[in-house]
């Protein structure tokens, strides 16, 4: 697979399809696994790290489920390609910044991605569009089983899968759901919702995972507890919480569009107006305005632009994507100009 070819492809998580896709962008399951009798990446010597990498690469090559994947060693990639994969949510920012004995495995459909020698030896994730954690679980569970036939995992019958950080031990599973909650933010109810989430041992993060700010009304919610409940119980608990948040967002949207309709329509159309005419625009402003247009599309106030096109704009306007499209390095101002141009082209059809 050529990394460039991904430019013409819509990531699974951006398809804008699947259950509740007006509010839920994507669902993701990640499993952390480690080889037995091998030092975890942060504690391994360079040689040990390389041995682990080779062992995993060899193991993966025998797994049928991974035959449509590409094994990309980070040491052989340039920084733009790495950032490009981060923007597509195929690997973490942290993984991209350190290169020694690290790799990322990506499938052609961008549903499966596996980071090798990140915090744990193996961090696999499966993404699905919309509210669909069970489907993501079904896929990743099969891959995990197939890999376990080729590689020995560090595991204890009472403490489950063993991970570098004890906060991930047990199932090694993190289920995350990415939500778009503009109405809860606008009606200032979001703080109450986020506080309740934190009390229930779930975490909220921004668009790009750990340590990132919530931007453009996007929130990623995931479980914190990984030892004790089974995988299905974890998914069920996340689902229960997400269903309630969806319900609250729907109510907030109804209140906004019935009581404050002119105000809301004004904000949505102004956002669209700026996006359709701006000549210079930052990535942050783009995300915030697109969030409003997406809401407009969901509520039927914006008729000629579908969700998928808006979702795609979120990603192709990211810095590494712009530079991949232009096929050269761009300064920050050059990017702001190129970004505005692409948005005009896509929204003025």
């Amino acid at each position: 697979m050529e990394i460039r070819n991904l430019l013409n492809h819509t990531s699974e998580w951006l398809k804008g399809s699947g259950p509740n896709s007006d509010i839920v962008i994507s669902s993701r399951i990640r499993l952390a696994r480690n080889l037995s009798n091998a030092s975890f990446p942060h504690w391994a010597s360079k040689k040990q790290g390389e041995e682990t990498l080779d062992k995993i690469k060899e193991g993966f090559s025998k797994v049928d489920y991974l035959k449509n994947t590409t094994f990309l060693e980070l040491a052989k990639m340039d920084s733009l390609d790495k950032q490009f994969l981060v923007e597509r949510h195929l690997m973490s920012l942290d993984h991209a910044q350190k290169t020694n004995s690290k790799a990322v495995v990506v499938d052609d459909e961008e549903i499966v991605s596996i980071m090798v020698n990140e915090e744990d030896h193996i961090r696999m994730q499966v993404m699905q569009s919309g509210f669909n954690l069970y489907e993501a679980w079904n896929i990743i569970n099969k891959i995990d089983e197939a890999i376990a036939e080729k590689l020995d995992f560090a595991f204890l019958s009472d403490w489950g899968y063993l991970t570098a950080c004890p906060t991930n031990a047990g199932t090694g599973m993190r289920g995350s759901v990415m939500l778009h909650l503009p109405a809860l933010v606008m009606s200032q109810a979001i703080d109450r919702v986020l506080a309740a989430i934190a009390k229930l041992s779930f975490t909220t993060r921004g668009l790009y995972g750990e340590g990132t700010q919530a931007m453009g009304n996007f929130f990623q919610i995931s479980n914190q507890i990984s030892l004790g409940p089974s995988e299905n119980e974890i998914i069920e608990s996340i689902n229960g919480l997400i269903r309630q948040i969806i319900e609250q967002e729907i109510q907030a949207r109804e209140v906004l569009s019935s009581k404050n309709s002119p105000l809301l329509e004004d904000r949505i159309n102004r956002s669209l107006g700026i996006l359709r005419s701006a000549r210079i625009i930052t990535s942050q402003e783009t995300t915030e305005l697109l969030s409003m247009v997406r809401l407009g599309s969901d509520l039927g106030m914006v008729k000629d632009i579908d969700r998928r096109r808006i979702n795609e704009l979120f990603i192709v306007t990211q810095p590494a994507h712009l530079q991949k499209i232009e096929d050269k390095k761009l300064s920050s101002q050059e990017r702001d100009i190129k970004r505005a141009q692409i948005i005009r082209e896509k929204l003025n059809i």
């Binding site: 376990a148 020995d152 009472d158 047990g170 507890i225 030892l227 004790g228």
Partner: peptide, 17 residues
């Protein structure tokens, strides 16, 4: 582990081996 997760008994899946 008990303090982090509130439990010390894994009830999820086992690797085949």
């Amino acid at each position: 582990l008990k303090r982090i997760h509130g439990s010390t008994q894994h009830t999820g899946k086992f690797p085949a081996k």
